[in-house]
Nucleic acid binder design. Structure first.
Length: 198
DNA sequence: CGCCGGATTTAA
DNA sequence: TAAATCCGGCGA
């Protein structure tokens, strides 16, 4: 199934389908190991919960575009817009493994050596790719600049509740919309626990 | 127009 | 455990 089709479905499926996909920007290539699904206005944990605003406008656009926002005034967060256009769903990229451009990644992250955990966390992923607000709304399915591609899917996946959304309603707070490659080091903490039965 | 607080990271 | 650091969205 082509990537565009994979992103066009329900955000939960799109999130799962993004695991293993590659993000490329210049010399840096990452493989996605952890994601979180965020729905439209009906999801009280989503930035879309207050409707369309200048900041979240890309969420209402077609699938395959980037939505970036500044968190805590410090960190940029990369999301992939998914679902039918105007559903305002997006997937937060929370963890990735470095496939290429390790030196550039180390320099941007400010670490002396490449480790498996160097991109374990959403702020770290965007920083490693050299992203900021100027990349908001870009088409990730294009041929230039920041690009999203199919990759090697994970063998096993764990899931759990989304992180850092205590402000959301009980139902949305408990929703297991966080997905990660099982046992992979490039997954942020706390590690998601497997939910049974899947 | 001012205030509140956040889909986090890092260091103490 | 707390500071960093900025701005979006809400209430006045």
């Amino acid at each position: 199934m082509p990537l565009r089709t994979r992103l066009a479905g329900p955000v939960e499926e799109a999130a799962l389908g993004l695991l293993g996909c590659k993000l490329a920007h210049g010399a840096v290539v990452l493989r996605i190991t952890e994601v979180e699904a965020y729905g439209g206005p009906e999801d009280s944990a989503s930035h879309a919960r207050h409707g369309c605003t200048p900041r979240n406008a890309p969420m209402w656009g077609p699938p395959g575009r980037a939505y970036l926002y500044l968190c805590y005034g410090v960190h940029w967060m990369l999301n992939v817009v998914t679902g039918p256009e105007e559903s305002a769903a997006a997937v937060l990229i929370r963890g990735a493994e470095v496939l290429a451009g390790g030196e550039v990644v180390c320099a941007r992250r400010g670490v002396p050596r490449l480790t498996p955990e160097v991109c374990a966390g959403p702020g770290k992923v965007a920083q490693a790719l050299g992203l900021d607000g100027s990349h908001g709304g870009v088409d990730l399915l294009g041929r230039r600049g920041l690009r999203l591609r199919l990759g090697v899917p994970p063998v096993a996946v764990v899931r759990g509740p989304r992180v850092g959304i205590d402000f959301a309603g009980p139902e949305d707070r408990l929703r297991a919309w966080r997905f990660a490659e099982s046992g992979h080091p490039a997954v942020s903490r706390p590690h998601p626990k497997e939910v049974a039965p899947w």
